[in-house]
């Protein structure tokens, strides 16, 4: 057998526990041994499960270790890493969780996983000096209205129908007793320097933040939020920029 055929057979048996070890795999006894081949299968399965456990520790705490292991196994079966960069593995795990029927009773689970995915992404994201508010101070009203802010490479905005930030926060230390949460939250993940930060934004500013992250101009974002009586354009902008949400400003089309 040529090496391409050998590796195709090896890989096919590796990813499918239902298959026997491939032909041509043997031992010093001259006889194949399923348990030996299973070491490789196990290394891959356990390694990827650990990768998910380490990226999604709160998701795991929420459902318990056994349920998480089962959910991870179901995910791994259909999602092998696209590259050897294992820290990036599981970016699509939150979407999988959202559609994982046995967890349907925990509708907030996928958003908690999304927050955790954003956390690791922020940790490894490119370094960039956050936009300073002083950069905008020199712009007159006309130019301010058409300015677009470049999202910082580490920043992510998660608008959730659930109290995702509070649930996440409750799992950062020892959880004592029961807890009660309600309402949606808009969570902003940033990494202005090297430490990842997580903030729950004021609800009135959520549509504005979302508009800016979506690439709208400051004027468009402000118009979109104008109906919100409590909204204060200046305070929201100073706040978001102060948290390190943006890396630059660009002026297009006027």
């Amino acid at each position: 057998m040529d090496i391409i055929a050998i590796q195709n057979a090896f890989a096919a048996a590796l990813v499918d526990p239902g298959q026997p070890a491939p032909a041509g795999i043997t031992t010093a006894r001259g006889k194949p041994d399923e348990k030996r081949f299973a070491v490789y299968r196990n290394n891959v399965a356990v390694g990827l499960t650990r990768a998910l456990e380490s990226r999604f520790p709160v998701t795991r705490q929420l459902v318990g270790a056994d349920f998480f292991a089962g959910m991870a196994r179901a995910f791994i079966a259909g999602h092998k890493p696209a590259s050897p960069l294992i820290f990036a593995y599981g970016g699509d795990f939150p979407d999988f969780v959202a559609g994982f029927a046995p967890a349907a009773g925990l509708p907030y689970l996928a958003d908690v996983a999304r927050l955790e995915a954003a956390w690791t992404h922020a940790y490894h994201a490119a370094d960039a000096v956050p936009l300073a508010i002083a950069t905008l101070a020199g712009l007159d009203g006309e130019r301010l209205a058409v300015a677009r802010l470049t999202v910082h490479p580490a920043a992510a905005l998660l608008r959730s129908c659930f109290p995702t930030g509070s649930i996440w926060q409750a799992h950062q230390g020892d959880i004592a007793g029961s807890a009660s949460f309600s309402g949606g939250e808009c969570v902003l993940v940033t990494r202005p320097e090297f430490d990842v930060r997580v903030h729950v934004l004021p609800p009135r500013d959520a549509p504005f933040a979302e508009a800016l992250f979506g690439g709208l101009t400051l004027g468009e974002a402000a118009e979109r939020t104008a109906a919100e009586p409590e909204f204060d354009f200046g305070a929201a902008l100073v706040g978001l920029i102060g948290l390190g949400a943006f890396a630059g400003v660009r002026m297009e089309g006027g």
């Binding site: 090496i3 195709n8 890989a11 590796l14 990813v15 490789y40 092998k80 590259s83 050897p84």
Partner: peptide, 19 residues
């Protein structure tokens, strides 16, 4: 460790042949 099936995160063995 690389294959069409994705990155198989282990150090997998190969036969030792002229090829």
């Amino acid at each position: 460790s690389t294959h069409d099936a994705g990155f198989l995160n282990d150090v997998l063995p190969l036969p030792y042949t002229a090829e």
